[in-house]
Write a protein that binds this DNA or RNA. Structure first.
Lengths: 207, 207
DNA sequence: TGGTGTGAAATACTTCACAGCA
DNA sequence: TGCTGTGAAGTATTTCACACCA
């Protein structure tokens, strides 16, 4: 099945299933039915079965899904079986929190390069990573050292940083600055913004 | 128009429009067309017009939308014209980053109570806020001091914290722990998880 | 004229319901 | 028997295209 025939929403849910399956594995369960998984992630079982069916047949009728192989299949679909190298730009509050974050997804994501434009920080080591000058972004990234950029700089600098990352060859970006950035169809950008989430929340909190 | 007739997706986009409109206002523009706004947020103009139309008529034919009034209307729809008080649970990396975050949305969100279960931290002040013992969550929240909880604790503690918050009367939660929590239909929970976003990103990064 | 507001058409997604297999 | 996998039916969302009006 071609990638552009898979519903966006299905892809968005795969990481949620995966997160849950990893916990199930830790608890020692070796199989799980769509019903059980559905309960754990608060979705309908049919949705889970349909989602998985876009990628193949993963289960056994009458039994359910074997947890470990299913995890591996989903990891493969999401390309989490590869090593991804990241560049972090901005070592303020958010940036430092990310640096001290224990390895994401069994170390499949690794922060390889760190940048900031504060002369006080450039050259120093933070959580064991040397901070480079932001003006070096394109140069260093260009060497193919990283594929993903994380933007954790103030709003006004976010777009410029994004452009430098892309100039350096990055094709995926996570942006923590609360500004919409859209550069090129080949570059996928995901936004993480607590203000946005809080606003969605408060909409629902007044009847 | 009744709240349950408004598409979920429309509500999800309002905060994005708002974020963009605030920037436009700063740049000194006083009106904007759906076409211009669409470009800035990378969506179709028809979608923006339709989204706004669920809540009333905001524009002037042949001209567009007045930025300032539109901002106020959207703020009202999202209930950002109220004062929201938050409880932050967990003062690790993420928690501290949030504490030093400058006021969200013109101060409409205020962190009122801070909790942690580390004896080293309890009683201390962090960014000017006294850290309370997590065992006090329900008691303190119950006094009606806060409406929203932010969970920034390790995975295994997240569910328990969520239950305490809800027991204390909180009806909205932002959860930074990478675990699905679903307690009660009256309690809305939004998840913020960089691993999930990274996985969605890497899915799209391999052709 | 130029851009909104909006029914109606087109797409996208979810749920149903059940055949089919372990 | 019990649970998956899946077409077909049902909803939800997006886009179209144009009437309408400042």
């Amino acid at each position: 099945m071609r990638k552009d025939e898979i519903p966006k929403e299905t892809v968005n849910r795969l990481p949620i299933y995966l997160r849950c399956l990893n916990r199930i594995l830790l608890r020692g369960h070796s199989t799980i039915s769509s019903d059980e998984l559905a309960n754990l992630v608060s979705m309908s079982p049919a949705k889970i079965r349909k989602d998985l069916s876009y990628f193949g047949k993963f289960g056994t009728r009458g039994v359910g899904y074997e947890v470990k192989p299913l995890i591996e299949r989903i990891r493969g679909i999401l390309n989490l079986d590869k090593n991804w190298k990241l560049a972090l730009v901005g070592v303020g509050n958010v940036g430092s929190a990310l640096l001290s974050h224990p390895g994401f997804h069994r170390g499949c994501f690794k922060i390889e390069l760190v940048f900031d434009d504060d002369p006080e920080l450039i050259g120093k080591e933070i959580s064991g990573k040397k901070v480079h000058d932001s003006s070096e972004i394109s140069n260093l990234v260009e060497k193919g050292l990283v594929q993903i950029g994380i933007i954790a700089v103030p709003n006004e600098k976010a777009r410029d940083v994004a452009e430098r990352l892309v100039r350096g060859g990055v094709t995926g970006i996570i942006n923590f600055a609360p500004v919409s950035i859209d550069l090129h169809d080949d570059v996928k950008i995901y936004q993480i913004d607590i203000s946005t989430e809080l606003s969605r929340l408060t909409y629902h909190m007044v009847p």
